[in-house]
């Protein structure tokens, strides 16, 4: 555990992510203005003391919108990963532990989902289901769950045949007991790593889809759709585009830092093969 704190990547990731959570939780206190308040007197103002990141084409405070936007992005990221984890763990466990026909069917389903490049699948689903945050999450869960199902199945297959599991079964333990007591603890580390990286990916993809108009709808402050708003005023007011993009990048970067660091610490195979 101590080495985790020493791992620079984990530390940087955790610091940024906790700051984001605090900002999101205390958005009303942190934000200098109401994020949706329209004020035609202060349209497209450059950064100033009153508006540290400037104002957009409707005179809304960009800093306040970014602060509130952290709520949306974190919520979408965590919700998408929770949904994907649930589906992935359930199907991956059935597939790996029980095998047989269930395994075949589930794995072909995974292959089918993986056959469509993720952004095309998410876009087509979000686009046809219609705009909105829930549809956006459904679309992203559809592309994310497969990796969890695969990892869980793979880990279970490798643990299942080991002596300690056989011994437990010999002692008369039930399937459920073996799964919860012996197999889940063994698959938890790889799952945590890909879930952390997955949150970053989900936030990035959600911003991209919202940017295209298929995700969270205005006037809700969302980083991707803020970039879309700024598109038309790029020449006159480039700062509209700079800050939301920076916010997305820093957030995704933090999850990548954390995920990378966790992988280094948790995956003994990785640690052995690749010297640091």
């Amino acid at each position: 555990m101590r080495s985790w704190i020493k791992n620079r990547n984990i530390l940087i990731g955790l610091i940024i992510i906790s700051s984001l959570i605090i900002i999101a939780a205390f958005a009303p206190q942190v934000a200098p203005h109401d994020p949706t308040e329209v004020n035609s007197m202060v349209r497209l103002q450059p950064p100033s003391k009153e508006y540290p990141f400037g104002t957009d084409h409707m005179g809304r405070c960009i800093l306040s919108r970014i602060v509130y936007g952290a709520r949306i992005s974190l919520l979408v990221g965590v919700a998408v990963i929770s949904g994907s984890l649930f589906i992935g763990i359930v199907l991956g466990t059935i597939s790996g532990y029980f095998g047989g026909l269930a395994d075949d069917v589930i794995m072909r389903l995974v292959d089918g989902f993986l056959a469509i490049p993720s952004m095309f699948l998410a876009l087509a689903l979000a686009g046809t289901l219609g705009p909105g945050m829930v549809n956006l999450m459904i679309a992203l869960i559809a592309v994310e769950w497969t990796s969890y199902a695969r990892v869980v199945r793979g880990s279970i297959l490798s643990v299942k045949e080991q002596d300690f599991v056989e011994a437990t079964r010999g002692l008369g333990a039930s399937d459920l007991y073996i799964l919860v007591r012996h197999i889940l603890p063994n698959i938890i580390s790889p799952v945590i790593v890909i879930a952390t990286l997955g949150i970053g990916y989900a936030i990035l993809a959600a911003a991209g889809l919202s940017f295209l108009g298929f995700g969270v709808q205005p006037p809700t402050p969302e980083w991707g759709s803020m970039l879309d708003d700024g598109r038309l005023f790029m020449r006159k007011a480039p700062y509209i585009m700079v800050f939301p993009g920076l916010a997305i990048m820093i957030t995704v970067l933090a999850f990548n830092f954390l995920g990378d660091g966790l992988r280094d610490e948790m995956d003994p195979r990785f640690r052995k093969e690749i010297p640091h």
Binding site: G208, L227, G245, I248, M249, V252, L253
Partner: peptide, 22 residues
Amino acid sequence: ALIGVSIPNFWQAFLLILLFSV
């Protein structure tokens, strides 16, 4: 490389347009 995988490509596109085109 970490920056590279974290940067939204639609944002990067705009930064490039801003610099090289505008």
